[in-house]
Design a protein around this nucleic acid. Structure first.
Length: 259
DNA sequence: ATGTCGAATAGGATTCGA
């Protein structure tokens, strides 16, 4: 089972790119972030025509997540537990059954800038709720994948110019500590389970020719429960997608599970 | 702040968020 996470930065602006990519790359599951669309406006028809089941959790203008799957999706839930008053669409879950059942969680973690400030407080509070959900998933002792745009640069080696991000909400010590608290529960960050060393990025800013200079950061991740980590056979970043016409500022990051 | 982009509002340029 090949699962890709992809922040598409607007489904209206990126529908053609998404359809081309689905046709060519044929992920079994695609977890999308920043669809920036209400559910009713999501182009589910053309995606279904390519053989995908579609589940969305959108809102007007910003945020929004979706799961596309060639296999049926079961037990779909929307919204990260822990704050009934949180109206931002950043979390969706579903179970997909291949040779094994896998619980899939698609997430768009808050950016948190400027930091410090209320947006950074929201980011850290959201990460605390994520930790609680992660802990509950561990207790189930089943394969679970939490994948998406984490807006977290885990280590200095995950940025081309780490010093430029030192004060940023994506790299501040509080952010990285909150990320490690989730890993320390027993989750495996799939890419670092497979690839070592610097120079691997999943996001390049549109400004200042960041992609041409390879001035990137690695912020799109798959976190695996122990039972999912047992099934991990590969993980890679589809960096070439950043060089296409009218690209997203993020690229797909893939895992392959023996499931 | 920026060698930028997408969406909303409004019916073009401005604002927000990233």
């Amino acid at each position: 089972m090949r699962i890709a996470t992809f922040n598409i930065n607007g489904i209206k602006a990126r529908a053609e790119l998404l359809l081309d990519w689905l046709s060519e790359a044929r992920p079994d599951v695609a977890l999308l972030q920043e669809i920036k669309s209400v559910d009713e406006a999501f182009p589910r028809g053309p995606i279904e025509d390519l053989g995908y089941n579609v589940e969305t959790h959108g809102q007007k203008g910003f945020n929004g997540v979706a799961i596309l799957s060639r296999l049926p999706l079961e037990d779909v839930t929307r919204g990260l537990p822990g704050d009934a008053g949180d109206e931002q669409a950043r979390w969706i879950e579903a179970t997909v059954v291949g040779t094994r059942a896998v619980r899939l969680c698609g997430l768009y973690l808050p950016n948190g800038n400027p930091a410090p400030g209320p947006k950074f407080d929201y980011k850290l509070a959201w990460m605390a709720r994520l930790q609680a959900r992660a802990s509950a998933l561990l207790n189930a002792e089943e394969p679970a994948v939490m994948a998406g745009d984490y807006n977290v640069i885990p280590q200095a080696q995950d940025a081309a110019r780490p010093e430029a991000w030192r004060e940023d909400a994506l790299f501040r010590p509080e952010t990285r500590a909150a990320f490690r608290r989730i890993l320390n529960l027993g989750f495996t960050e799939a890419f670092r389970g497979r690839v070592q060393g610097p120079g691997h990025y999943s996001f390049w800013d549109y400004q200042a020719g960041a992609y041409d200079r390879n001035d990137g950061i690695r912020i799109d991740h798959h976190l695996l429960s122990p039972q999912a980590a047992d099934l991990l056979t590969d993980c890679w970043i589809e960096a070439e997608m950043r060089g296409r016409e009218k690209p997203s500022d993020h690229v797909p990051v893939w895992i392959e599970l023996d499931a």
